[in-house]
C-alpha cells in the first residue's frame, strides 16, 4: 500500500502546496470556459434582443423573406436562411454519414493493421484542409460538373455546398465512429459468430447497434460542424435569398448571411442587431443539438 515514503516533512509540505496550487489553477481555467460560454451568449443576447423591439419576433422567426436593406419595405424573415442552413447541413450529413460509417467499419473490422495505420491519419488530415481551399475546389471543379450534369446555368447551389461540407465533416464522423466501433469488446463479435452469424450480419445487427450511442454522438458533432461552416457556403452555396425549394437551387445559409452583411451595416443599427439575432438563433440551434446528444448519451449509458 504505502509505496511512497515521505522523506522529510518539509518536502511533504511543499509537495502538498504545489498540489493545491495546481488544483486551483486547473479549476480556474476550467471555469473560464463556462465564463466564456456565458459571455458569448450575453454578447449575442444584448445586441440580438434589441432587434425585437422593432421587429416582432414571430415575423423574424417565421417570415419567409429576408430583405433588410430594402428602402421601402425592409423584411426580416429568417426562414429562407434557416432553410438554407438546413438544406446544406442535412445534405452534408446525408452524404457524410454513410461514407463516414462505411470508412469506420472498414477501418475497424476489415482493413489489415497496416492499411489502418496508413488510412487513419490520411482521413484525419482531411480535417486540416482549410475550408477556403474546399471552397475553391467547389468553385473551380464541382460547380462546372454540377452545372453540366443537371443542365444548370451555374453549379453554385445547395448540392455543391452539401458535398463540400460533407467533406469537411467526414473526418469527424469517420474517426468518432471508428472509435465507437473499435472500442467494442471482441467477445461481442465472437458470441455472434458462434450463433452462426456471418461477419457482415454481426457488423450490421450487433456491432453497429452496440456502437449506436457513439455513432449518434459522431453524427451530432458532425451536424454542429456543418451548421457552423461559413467559408464553404459563402463561396459555393449560390448566395440567393429566394426561398429554396430544391438542392439544385442557390441558397444563403445563416452563417453566410452574417458574414456577407456584417460588412455593409452601420454599427448598432437595426440591421446590425438583426444579424446578432441570426447569430443567436444559430447558437441556440447548436446548443440544442449538443444538449440532445448529451441527454441521449446519458440515457443509453444508464440503460
Amino acid at each position: 500500500m504505502e509505496a511512497v515514503v515521505t522523506d522529510h516533512p518539509q518536502g511533504e509540505f511543499r509537495r502538498r502546496a504545489a498540489d493545491r496550487a495546481m488544483h486551483w489553477i486547473l479549476r480556474i481555467i476550467a471555469s473560464l470556459t463556462v465564463v466564456l460560454l456565458i459571455g458569448i451568449f450575453v454578447f449575442l443576447l444584448k445586441s440580438g434582443l434589441r432587434t425585437f423591439s422593432e421587429v416582432p419576433i414571430l415575423n423574424f422567426l417565421f417570415g419567409t423573406r429576408w430583405n433588410p436593406s430594402s428602402f421601402h419595405e425592409p423584411l426580416w424573415g429568417i426562414l429562407p436562411l434557416v432553410t438554407g442552413t438546413l438544406f446544406v447541413s442535412a445534405g452534408a450529413l446525408l452524404i457524410a454519414v454513410p461514407f463516414g460509417l462505411s470508412i469506420a467499419i472498414y477501418l475497424s473490422y476489415i482493413a489489415s493493421r497496416r492499411t489502418r495505420e496508413i488510412l487513419k491519419p490520411v482521413i484525419e488530415m482531411i480535417a486540416g484542409i482549410p475550408s477556403v481551399v474546399l471552397g475553391l475546389i467547389g468553385l473551380l471543379y464541382l460547380a462546372p460538373l454540377i452545372a453540366k450534369t443537371f443542365g444548370l446555368s451555374n453549379g453554385l447551389n445547395a448540392l455543391n455546398a452539401s458535398i463540400l461540407v460533407a467533406i469537411a465533416t467526414l473526418p469527424t464522423i469517420a474517426s468518432l465512429c471508428e472509435d465507437a466501433l473499435s472500442g467494442l469488446s471482441h467477445r461481442l463479435s465472437e458470441s455472434s459468430w458462434a450463433l452462426g452469424a456471418t461477419r457482415w450480419t454481426t457488423i450490421r445487427k450487433v456491432l453497429v447497434p452496440a456502437a449506436a450511442p457513439g455513432i449518434g454522438a459522431a453524427i451530432m458533432l458532425g451536424l454542429g460542424r456543418a451548421i457552423g461552416e461559413t467559408m464553404v457556403v459563402l463561396m459555393v452555396a449560390g448566395n440567393s435569398l429566394a426561398f429554396p425549394r430544391s438542392f439544385l437551387e442557390p441558397v444563403r445559409p445563416m452563417t453566410a448571411t452574417i458574414a456577407i452583411e456584417i460588412r455593409e451595416v452601420v454599427v448598432g443599427d437595426l440591421h446590425w442587431n438583426s444579424l446578432f439575432a441570426v447569430g443567436l438563433v444559430l447558437f441556440l440551434i447548436t446548443f440544442a443539438i449538443n444538449s440532445v446528444t448529451d441527454l441521449y448519451l446519458h440515457r443509453t449509458i444508464r440503460s
Binding site: 469488446s185 467477445r187 461481442l188 465472437e190 458470441s191 455472434s192 458462434a194 450463433l195 452462426g196 452469424a197 450480419t201 445487427k205 450487433v206 447497434p209 452496440a210
Partner: peptide
C-alpha cells in the same frame, strides 16, 4: 454446435432480442 464463453457476453439488446437473435439471423 453452440458456444458459451467464460464471461457473460449478452448483446446490448433487450432480454427478448438477445434470445431471439440466433433465429433472427436465420
Amino acid at each position: 454446435v453452440g458456444m458459451v464463453f467464460q464471461n457473460p457476453t449478452p448483446f446490448p439488446k433487450s432480454v427478448f432480442d438477445n434470445v431471439a437473435y440466433g433465429l433472427e439471423i436465420q
